[in-house]
């Protein structure tokens, strides 16, 4: 066996002959020129609209700015972590209820899973923000944000867990049955530990969805990164620079989470299940 080029996108192409090499070289030069032109015009647009003026950027050199942003980021992280934990527990319960022997419970869990998966987290947030208070229930803004985000994520996570359980080889159950374990014990001692290990990378990648969901915290006036950025914008009158900086911070956080998930998947040899079904809100 020969040592192949690994990725499919390389495998699509032959080792180039002279004509192909020339064509590729021309394509490379042309695309580089187009790219440079594009970047030039983008920067030029910032310049001619005066958005490169240092008064829009200098506040980013001050520690107080970053302290305030970091406070917001801490809020984001708190919501994300608490939502992550709640949704994981809830997702696990939904999945266990669904695969369990109790028919009624199984149907209920299935309906709830499908329901949570098919509602926008924003709608759930409105439910906790607009609807619940009308019934006289008062709730801190942290929970008005965290609970709906957890609910929305729990549906997806239930499916992730189920994919993990399905990924455990059938022989494991059969072997456990042959040594006389009960259904409950098989699930607890044999299936779950393996399934959990399989889905770890997927759980991590779902954290991206949770982080994205937190960005509507301003709806319930919870001080997260985005909300604090809005405050800074009104203080410094530097909207464009602030929104771009915030976007970059979010992108870097989510990129890091995704890379971590890929790393974990690579290390354990597991695929990231249901990554495609994440809600890109």
């Amino acid at each position: 066996m020969s040592a192949h080029a690994t990725s499919m996108r390389d495998a699509l192409y032959e080792a180039p002959g002279p004509k192909t090499r020339r064509r590729t070289a021309i394509g490379t030069v042309v695309s580089l020129v187009l790219l440079a032109v594009g970047i030039f015009f983008a920067i030029r647009q910032f310049y001619i609209t005066d958005q490169l003026n240092e008064r829009y950027w200098s506040f980013l050199l001050e520690w107080t700015t970053w302290r305030f942003l970091l406070e917001g980021l801490w809020g984001t992280i708190q919501v994300a972590i608490v939502s992550g934990i709640i949704s994981m527990l809830l997702g696990l319960l939904l999945m266990l209820g669904r695969i369990g022997h109790n028919k009624v419970l199984s149907v209920i869990c299935r309906v709830l899973t499908d329901l949570f998966r098919s509602l926008p987290s924003l709608l759930l947030i409105y439910f906790f923000f607009l609807v619940i208070p009308k019934y006289g229930i008062r709730m801190p803004s942290f929970w008005m944000l965290t609970i709906p985000i957890s609910l929305a994520a729990s549906g997806v996570l239930a499916e992730v867990f189920r994919a993990g359980v399905n990924a455990v080889p059938k022989g494991q159950t059969e072997a456990a049955m042959s040594i006389g374990l009960t259904h409950g014990k098989i699930v607890r001692k044999i299936i779950l530990p393996q399934a959990l290990r399989i889905v770890i990378p997927s759980l991590v990648s779902q954290l991206v969805v949770v982080v994205k969901d937190t960005t509507v915290a301003y709806v319930v006036s919870f001080p997260d990164l985005m909300q604090n950025a809005r405050v800074l914008i009104s203080n410094y009158d530097a909207l464009v620079s602030m929104y771009f900086v915030v976007a970059i911070i979010y992108i870097l956080i989510n990129y890091a989470i995704n890379q971590l998930s890929i790393y974990l998947a690579h290390r354990s040899g597991n695929k990231i299940v249901t990554r495609a079904s994440e809600n890109p809100l």
Partner: peptide, 24 residues
């Protein structure tokens, strides 16, 4: 792909709605 799969859509929306007008 990395840019747009990692940016929260809200964050992108505020750029489109509030920031782009400043950029003409």
């Amino acid at each position: 792909v990395q840019l747009f799969r990692n940016i929260p859509t809200i964050s992108l929306l505020v750029i489109f709605v509030y920031a782009l007008p400043y950029l003409g």
